[in-house]
Structure formats: structure tokens, C-alpha cells
Simulated assay, not measured.
Amino acid sequence: MSKDLLTLKGVHTHIGAYHILHGVDLTVPRGQLTMLLGRNGAGKTTTLRTIMGLWKASQGRIEFNGTDITALATPQIASMNVAYVPENMGIFSDLTVRENMLLAARGAKHAGQMDDTRLKWIFSLFPAVEKFWNHPAGKLSGGQKQMLAVSRAIVEPRELLIVDEPSKGLAPAIINNMIDAFAQLKASGVTILLVEQNINFAKRLGDTVAVMDNGVVVHSGSMKELAEDENLQHSLLGLAI
């Protein structure tokens, strides 16, 4: 079994006339949390969407668990125990929290068939999901919607969790709750790929890091090393952690 659960090799992505990814090389080690950092417009979200098959790679290869998934459709990739939480969260506003969760629990036809032990674990991570179980999801706050989005992604066991900017627009207390939840998810054996702009979030959670600029990965290595090297932070991100 390879130590890397996910690898991208020379991946290019075109969206219409625009060439967004210019040969992305990325490795996501099994059982670790990999941060994908970079300035706005660097290609981070495009990378996630290309991994999930929402946009097709025009060149290169994407492997998950040793299987070439480059040309697979999104439902096929999701069926391999891969979950994706997009930046807009993808919540169904007119449905209740329970109904949103049920839609993601592919093995259940009604709420009573959802894994009760797993639900209790999710409720321990995100108490608001239990509190607003029968409320319309559209009535939740931004932080509560983000909790629901992550909860929905993990309502069934996942081998890989891909999340785009989970802390965006959240209050500090909610961010701390989210950090604790991702730490527990990682401890449970889930491999996580996370795009994040909150550098404190990245520093506290990341094992490995890849930094993107202009559609390519320009740096990869230990998150701890990047967090301790102020000159490297300035050169890659224009900021200091």
C-alpha cells in the first residue's frame, strides 16, 4: 500500500478558453492532513474540482489509492469513499438538517436507518447539527451551515475528505470548534486535503503543505517547517504566519 493516498502528476485544466492549471504535481500522504495554500486565483479550487471530476484534466494523471481516476465521473469518484465540501457548502436550504444528512447517507432510505453511533459521534463534533436537526438548513448561521456541510460529508465513513476554505467568514469560536473537529477526524484515520486562507488554522492542523501560484505547486513539504520560516512565508505567500 502506497504511503500517498492521492497523487496528481502534471495535471493541466482548461475551463473554456482559459488555461488554469499548468502541470500540478501534488501528493496527499495517507492518514495526514495536507494544506493547500496560495494567493487568491492561484488555482486551489480548480485543483479540488479537477480531483473530483467536476472539471476534467486536459493533461496529466490523478491517482487515488493506486487507481487512475483522471477520466472518472464525479459520482464514481465519490463512490470510492471520497467526500468534497465546496466553498459554497452546497447546502439544500429548503430541506431540514435531517433531510440534508439523509441525502448524503446513501445506505439509508429514512433517518432511522442512519448509523446511530456515527450520528452521535458527529453530534459530539458539531452539537449545532443535533440542536437544529428538524430546522430548515437555510435558517442556519454561516458557521452552522459549514458544520452541516462537513457533517454531511462524513455521515458515512470516508477515506479522503476534501474541503475548500472551511473557516471562511466564521467567528473565531466557530473556527476553533472546526479545528478540533478536523483534528478528531484525522485521528480517526481520515486523510484530509484542505484549502485554507486562515494561516493560524493551517498552522495548527497541517502535517504537510503545498503552496500554489499561477496554476502550479511552487512549494511542498512540512507545514511545521513553513510555519517556522518567515522568509519562506513572505516569498511564497506575501505574509508571515
Rank of each mutant, 00 (worst) to 15 (best):
T27K: 15
L54F: 04
L125G: 02
G10N: 13
V150A: 05
N198I: 01
G53V: 00
P86G: 02
T70G: 12
I241F: 13
V85P: 01
E156R: 10
L239T: 12
I241D: 10
F126W: 03
T34V: 06
G90P: 00
L36P: 01
Q113F: 15
W133Y: 15
S188G: 07
L72I: 01
W133R: 11
G107I: 02
L36W: 10
V150C: 01
A187G: 05
A171S: 08
G60R: 07
G31T: 02
D4G: 02
S188D: 13
E99K: 13
I62F: 13
R30H: 15
R39K: 15
L6E: 03
T45G: 10
P136Y: 01
P136C: 08
L6V: 11
N65R: 10
S79R: 11
G43N: 10
Q144Y: 02
F92P: 05
V155C: 07
L54V: 15
N81F: 08
V150R: 04
I175F: 05
F201W: 07
M114H: 06
R98V: 00
G142R: 11
Y18M: 04
M1F: 02
L140H: 09
N177G: 14
M1T: 06
V82A: 07
F182T: 06
T47D: 14
W133P: 01
A17D: 13
D68C: 03
G169C: 05
Q76E: 15
L239W: 00
S93G: 13
S93D: 15
G143P: 13
F64D: 08
V97R: 04
F123Q: 10
I162K: 03
G221P: 00
A73P: 03
N134E: 14
M35F: 09
K120H: 08
A128F: 00
T13Y: 06
L48Y: 14
